[in-house]
């Protein structure tokens, strides 16, 4: 191999190595073991009633698995927290997690883990349009992917831009009544006509949520 080519290859390998450097974390196992390690798994697949999300390991703060699986349905969800302070509940579907542990790679079954504490530093959320809180307690920051939405009020249909909104509160189920507070002080009540509201999250994920699952949306100023 030509020496220049070798040098470029070496540089590329170095770049690849640094790109895939693991994320510092402590993995706590169900039997009480604690493994300080580097997580090599790049994405965690999380499934919940919003669908499937692939959360990058470098944006995660904590994954807490249900205790001993001996719990009621409501509690048997895994809780995932991001570096922004967002919370998602669902199932982590990665069958195993790869980690670098005292210099050796190790694949561990997800079902044997109690919690993973990532060493990623907390990040103050920036450049987001709205804080969304779901009725199940999940919370995330993001930008709405549409400019506005149509509202069916008892006196007519109106299309309102999100940029003029302060807060939307959702009530009821099925025909979800939305209460809109506008920045200028106006208030409206009606049914959001869209089947879904789509968000682009700070973690780079895009999700669509039916209004029935949302508790409120607070718009950032």
């Amino acid at each position: 191999m030509h020496s220049r080519t070798r040098f470029i290859f070496f540089l590329l390998s170095l770049a690849a190595l640094s790109l895939y450097a693991g994320i510092g974390a402590t993995v706590h196992m169900l039997n009480g073991d604690a493994l300080p390690c580097e997580i090599q798994t790049e994405y965690f697949s999380v499934v919940n009633n919003l669908g499937e999300m692939f959360l990058p390991a470098d944006l995660l703060a904590e994954i807490r698995f249900p205790e001993a699986f001996t719990v009621t349905a409501k509690q048997s969800l895994t809780e995932i927290r991001t570096v922004y302070g967002e919370v998602f509940r669902g199932f982590v579907t990665n069958e195993s997690i790869t980690l670098l542990f005292y210099g050796g790679n190790m694949d561990i079954r997800r079902g044997k883990i109690s919690k993973i504490l990532f060493q990623n530093a907390p990040v103050a959320p920036k450049e987001y349009q709205a804080t969304v809180t779901l009725r199940n307690g999940d919370m995330f920051y993001g930008n709405l992917m549409e400019n506005g939405t149509k509202i069916q009020t008892s006196y007519g249909i109106v299309e309102l831009p999100f940029k003029n909104m302060k807060r939307i509160t959702f009530e009821g189920s099925g025909n979800v009544l939305s209460k809109l507070e506008m920045i200028e002080g106006g208030t409206l009540q009606g049914v959001i006509k869209s089947d879904y509201l789509s968000f682009s999250l700070l973690t780079g994920i895009e999700i669509s949520v039916v209004p029935d699952l949302i508790l409120n949306i607070v718009f950032a100023r």
């Binding site: 009633n49 349905a73 409501k74 048997s76 969800l77 779901l134 009725r135 199940n136 307690g137 189920s173 029935d212 699952l213």
Partner: peptide, 10 residues
Amino acid sequence: FPEQGKGVTE
């Protein structure tokens, strides 16, 4: 399905 998205589907 769970009420108001709280919990899981059975």
